[in-house]
Simulated scan of single mutants.
Amino acid sequence: MSEKIRVLVTALGGTSHGQQILKALRHGELDYHIVGSDMTSRSSGRAISDEFVTLPPAGAPDYLESLERVIEAHGIQAVFHGCEQEMTVFSQNRERLEKNGVFFPVNPPRVLDICQNKARTNALLMEKGFEPPRYVSITSVDDTEQVDFLPAVLKPSSGGGGSAHVYIAQDQRELEFLAEYLLGFCPEVLAQEYMGTAEEEYTVGVLFGRDGELLNSIGVRRLVEGAISTRFRVPNRTGRADLGPQLTISSGISQGEVGKWPEVTQVCESIASVLGAEAPVNVQCRVVDGAVKVFEINPRFSGTTSLRAMAGYNEPEVLIRREVLGEEVTPGFSYREGTILRSLVEHWIAD
């Protein structure tokens, strides 16, 4: 193409999925002019954007107007959200935002309503016969009496991200303590059965077009070791050898073996299709005795988006080709398989 495709990627601070999208575009074959944004100029995203702008928080009264001004001023053709707050705003205002032909890859509110509440997610999975780990919704410490499975993973039912505020209770005392702690800042806590081992944990991306057509899926069998990919690890005191010597929660920074993993990805495709997705969906699961046990669904691009792009599974570019350029994308397109490891990268940001 003679002209660059002009893309806006938001929320480029920290280890956001916005940075993953931007890195994936840099791995692409098309020529892009990427405008990055964040709430502050002290953002590492400045170092990897062609231009950088600041936007107010997604909840600010002037957010949409500010966003629209940036889109118009820079001739933006596609906007990728880099945080869940902006994802929600984009989804709720998609018709307004896309009225001038700008593409916003985001799932509809009905999908977000389910996936952004972990209790609703588990209820849907059970209703549709996918057999997730057992769970109990906790709104008071007294509700812990209903938990008849240990160890249990406790986490806020809504919000979170990057495995924030996720803990393991191995006995009733820990269960009550952690429930009381989490209820101190969130109204509902999900207690979910801890199952399997970290060696059989997967993060699976399922890609849909704007029209809801299933385009492809990819899996990363997580390598959960070292500080970068481990949220925390505790000795297993339950006496259950099937859970391994240690109980582990992975971090939001995944690495590992990238591949098709059909026994896992096909189940995740079915789940995402039941949701009615119209954009990327990321499914977190473990395989236990041959069964896929889904414990979380994120209705967005993943923290492994750039890893997938390195394998030739470039979700942002596929969607730009299909939805912006009008190119034909063959469902089930091929990509490479292999192992990808991560490390920290530093950027000099001049004031």
Rank of each mutant, 00 (worst) to 15 (best):
L183C: 03
D171K: 04
M195D: 03
S140Y: 13
S158W: 15
A191R: 00
N117G: 00
L190V: 03
T197R: 14
F185V: 13
N216T: 08
A169G: 02
E199W: 12
L183R: 13
R233S: 09
D171L: 02
Q192E: 13
V102P: 12
A119S: 12
V206E: 15
L214W: 13
L182Y: 01
V204C: 10
F177G: 01
N216E: 11
E225N: 08
R120S: 08
F177Y: 03
D148L: 05
F208G: 01
R222Q: 11
L215N: 15
G161W: 13
G160K: 08
E193Y: 12
P105T: 10
S158H: 12
C115Y: 11
P151A: 11
P108G: 01
G196H: 10
P187A: 00
E213N: 12
G226K: 09
V111H: 06
G159N: 02
D113Q: 14
Q170A: 07
T197I: 04
Y194M: 05
G226M: 09
V220S: 08
Q172I: 10
Y135C: 05
L183F: 09
N100S: 09
G161C: 03
E193P: 08
V204A: 08
G196R: 15
G129K: 11
R120C: 06
G226W: 00
D148T: 10
V220L: 07
R221G: 01
E131W: 14
T121M: 13
S229A: 15
A164N: 03
R231A: 13
F149M: 04
P108A: 04
V206D: 10
C186S: 12
G226Y: 00
T203W: 00
A164D: 13
R231H: 11
N100P: 10
Y167E: 04
L175S: 04
E200I: 08
R210Q: 09
K118R: 15
V147E: 15
L214M: 01
F130Q: 01
M126F: 12
Q146N: 05
D171C: 03
Q116S: 05
